[in-house]
Design a protein around this nucleic acid. Structure first.
Lengths: 359, 359
DNA sequence: CCAGGGCATGTTTACGTAAACATTGCGAGC
DNA sequence: GCTCGCAATGTTTACGTAAACATGCCCTGG
């Protein structure tokens, strides 16, 4: 070296022209402030051992250059991204959205960002794709909001060393799971209707391939049987209000149907419409209980009695769970397991009443 | 050096024990496959100039070690994160959610991940906080889904060099904005009701501090005036079904009110309930038009005529806009501006009919 | 009055990757 | 038969940060 003329400054500027990269680096700030880059680092991270005067100088230099730390370099050095990945299906269901929101909020409080991995179509291929993309993603851990059966075959491609918590699913034997207490909620709904004097309770279930729907339906059946009642035939919907409407048209013709437990509020909404159209009054002729307690449920016609889910708590626990996994290096050996249940709450409104025979 | 005994292998393992870092690095793969790390890099990125045989060996080594590329190092080297940041308020409104979903999907198609920056409370402080956190975030560009007035004072802390697209707002003079054609939608709603024969149209508006609400209200007033009608007093809600209900109780007492344009579907839902309770039939006595076309709107009592918003398109355009900004280095000089409007569509259902006087 | 102990700051190095440049080896053309 | 050229692979280096270690200085205590 030394043959060419330039030797001190041009190095930093030569190639920089080709790529007008976003910002100033620590070295730039250090140069302007007349300190070493390490001092800039200390200021940037709020470490002690820096004079107030020096700190001010560095801060001024940062402002002048519009310095923002390069998080790639930071992550590379620290070995963590401070980011959580969330894999979810299209955000079509209110529950997923509310859970996601709670996750994002909790994560932010812990200084973590949340990266979304949407899976457009819930096919096995898509899920696998998401998981392999995840492999290259800058995340420290993953929260999956997804029915477990779609997760199964994807397990293989789950990179080792990536901690996972699953929400809204079962399979607590293989993953750490956080979920609403589906069984308790369904039981409360059915018992409430029985306590009002109804002989039995019909069930408008969610789609067959949903474990949440399965568990609600199962708890409905069990609760009835335990109470010595005969479970009527199960009516199947697909979570949508439209499917609730179609089911409702059928239920309206069942003259001995005085109480319906709908597996979610949307289907309950459609059900209410169908019953109204067929002239069956709610709650005078038929009582209806929903599940979820979406914001609009209080404004249905009539306001819907429903099972409140605490999505915020589910989200919070997901974050807590996944972070504790990260922080304990090898505390829980394989993947960690166990299910944490979040309790539900029966919200009484105007869609339930004693059956006609009791008045 | 050379004084201590170990010199070749222990280097890689010594400190590693303290931090059981997640995975194997390129060097590890290279060692196992008996090639250089550069060759591993070539395989990893699908570059040419590698024998099929070598490629297979490397792939095998990758699988064996469970290698996943370190995206921090990759981002550091490449100078980009392939990630978009999305700043949004609590995901309470359906519109934001659907937009976010579309953004995530579009971004994924372009090979970009999406990082969520939730702002819990829409105060100026919180927004500023989000923007400064954003400064340290691993994102190449930002999409803001937010009312613009909250963005104003935050501008200062927006790091230079970070491209921004704003959805669901105005201020196309300062930012690149993608938004639903609020004016066109509101006009269509009002004109539809006038065409049915109503003398005038009442408006159940959204909160005062929402520009979307403002524009819908303004367009409502303008359309009425242009048609030579007298705009009735404006009724104010807050987007919630509950506020729609309260407003509806008041509107039900206005005997000359035969047509209402609600600024969103949730408020329309509450309105329907209030009108029903007061014995005013929809659409026979009062016609109602909503805005948004949420999934449940078709299941309201009666099914709601409403203005459909194409949130998917809004999201798609946001991603497209922000990516084109990134890719054109300094094509659009300052911040870029201009508003892209996404058209709406009137969806006819059963909540509108000619006024009683016409039958 | 000088040694020793902090404290403020500087220097070196490594994180994992990929661009740029360097080096092999082998086949074709003269 | 020898060289030129290209294809396959290896080596060096830099990206921006922060831990670990090194330095210099001032102040205190014997």
């Amino acid at each position: 070296m030394g043959t060419a003329d330039g030797d001190s400054t041009p190095v930093g500027t030569r190639k920089r022209a080709a790529r007008p990269r976003q910002g100033a680096s620590m070295a730039d700030v250090a140069r302007l402030a007349g300190v070493s880059s390490q001092t800039v680092s200390r200021v940037s991270n709020g470490f002690p051992g820096v004079t107030e005067e020096t700190r001010q100088q560095v801060m001024a230099a940062m402002r002048e250059l519009g310095y923002r730390p390069n998080s790639a370099a930071r992550a590379l050095k620290r070995g963590e991204f401070r980011t959580l990945g969330v894999i979810t299906f299209s955000l079509s269901t209110m529950g997923n959205i509310r859970t996601l929101e709670a996750i994002a909020t909790s994560a932010a409080q812990q200084g973590y960002a949340v990266t979304l991995l949407p899976v457009a179509v819930p096919t096995q291929d898509e899920v696998n794709g998401a998981f392999s993309r995840l492999g290259e993603l800058a995340v420290d851990a993953v929260i999956v909001i997804m029915e477990i059966h779609l997760l199964d075959a994807a397990t293989v491609s789950l990179p080792p060393g990536v901690q996972v918590v699953v929400a809204d699913s079962d399979a607590g034997d293989r993953y750490t799971v956080v979920d609403t207490d589906q069984v308790g909620g369904a039981r409360d709904a059915v018992r409430h209707l029985l306590a009002l004097g109804h002989d039995t309770v019909w069930h408008l279930a969610g789609p067959e391939d949903s474990f949440a729907a399965q568990r609600r339906a199962h708890a409905w059946r069990t609760t009835l049987t335990e109470a010595g009642r005969n479970p009527p035939p199960l009516v199947r919907g697909d979570w949508s209000a439209e499917s609730g409407y179609r089911a409702g048209l059928r239920l309206a013709d069942e003259q001995d149907c005085t109480a319906v437990f709908a597996a979610n509020d949307q289907m309950a909404l459609g059900l209410l419409r169908a019953l109204h159209e067929r002239g069956r009054k709610v709650p005078d002729d038929v009582s209806v209980v929903g599940f979820d307690d979406i914001a609009e449920a209080a404004s249905f016609l009539p306001p819907l009695t429903t099972i409140h889910q605490d999505f915020a708590e589910v989200g919070r626990l997901c974050v807590e769970g996944v972070l504790s996994k990260i922080r304990r290096p090898e505390h829980d050996a394989p993947t960690g397991q166990g299910t944490t249940l979040v309790p539900t709450r029966l919200v009484l409104r105007d869609s339930t009443a004693p059956p006609p025979s009791h008045r």
